[in-house]
């Protein structure tokens, strides 16, 4: 199994410890990668798409063309990148005029977009039957003493006519992976709510959404040890705003937010200290203590 690894920008430049955890996990699961040399920002589905859809599609098609030249499907590790690259792949397949327009620009810089490389997100790969079996076999530290909440985020699953992965209203993939790791997964009302990161022009929205979800998790009878997400924007949004809200409102919002591969790495026996979990705004000290026992 080999993929062209598309890192994007947020993870490699701002959260390299997420990349580290992902690479360790993929390595243990025997997933091979080739690096996508010369790829740029996906580009981001908020600003670039809002400014000019053609710019968005063409920059994305350039990235996909790099993977096509390598003859490999694309593995994304961020839901924003997944949305941009997969939307481009699907839209350009359906729309000949846009396909030609994109290629007219790309040929002038020596690229051709054909649409031959599929785009995937690690959640899609990890939740496949055969991969779940593999995961079961490499667990060294089962997480059966942990209560974990799954945050799916929006772009992983919606719009389903584009993303074509999991159920857009009742997703299960992340919970399935968590259960295989041994964790107890949590049912909660605001599970499918958006993190609000993309509503960047009005920060109140993000604060409200983060407060709602984290307050609900805090009020549950059982103690939530962590919430996991599969997108760096979601992780940083909850992590940062939880801290800010605690300071502002005096409420104790202290549930640590983990990137799914981090929790997988822990279950696979990677040394916790190597994962940089202490870089979080909400330090997962309680969780780390629990995991070390």
């Amino acid at each position: 199994m080999e993929y062209a690894l598309y890192l994007g920008c947020t993870i490699p430049l701002r959260f390299p410890h997420f990349e580290y955890a992902f690479r360790e996990v993929a390595n243990i699961l025997d997933i091979q990668f080739k690096e996508m040399k010369g790829s740029s920002c996906c580009p981001d589905p908020v600003a670039t798409q809002s400014l000019n859809i053609d710019t968005w599609l063409t920059l994305a098609a350039r990235n996909l063309a790099i993977a096509e030249k390598m003859g490999l499907d694309v593995m994304t590790i961020c839901s924003g990148c997944f949305e941009t690259l997969k939307t481009t792949h699907v839209l350009l397949k359906e729309n000949n005029e846009a396909f030609d327009r994109v290629n007219l620009v790309l040929t002038k810089i020596g690229y051709e977009y054909k649409g031959t490389s599929k785009v995937t997100h690690f959640t899609e790969l990890f939740s496949q039957e055969a991969m779940l079996e593999k995961i079961k076999n490499v667990i060294l530290r089962p997480l059966d003493d942990l209560n974990v909440a799954a945050h799916y985020g929006c772009h992983l699953i919606r719009p389903s006519k584009i993303m074509q992965f999991d159920d857009p209203e009742r997703p299960e993939s992340i919970d399935t992976i968590l259960k295989v790791l041994g964790a107890n997964t949590i049912k909660f009302a605001s599970k499918l709510e958006c993190c609000g990161y993309c509503a960047r022009l009005n920060e109140d929205i993000g604060f409200k959404l983060v407060e709602e979800k984290m307050s609900e998790l805090n009020k549950l009878e059982l103690e939530v040890d962590a919430m996991v997400a599969v997108c760096p924007a979601c992780v940083s949004q909850y992590d940062r705003k939880e801290k800010l809200l605690s300071r502002k409102t005096g409420k104790e919002l202290d549930i640590p937010i983990l990137f799914l591969p981090e929790l997988m790495a822990i279950a696979f026996g990677i040394e916790i200290d190597k994962l940089g979990l202490k870089n979080r705004s909400v330090k997962p000290m309680k969780l780390i203590e629990k995991l070390k026992t």
């Binding site: 589905p45 908020v46 809002s50 929006c154 772009h155 919606r158 719009p159 958006c194 609000g196 990161y197 993309c198 509503a199 022009l201 009005n202 929205i205 959404l209």
Partner: peptide, 8 residues
């Protein structure tokens, strides 16, 4: 301009 891109 006020959209969180949740696609619901």
């Amino acid at each position: 301009w006020t959209c969180s891109l949740c696609h619901r």
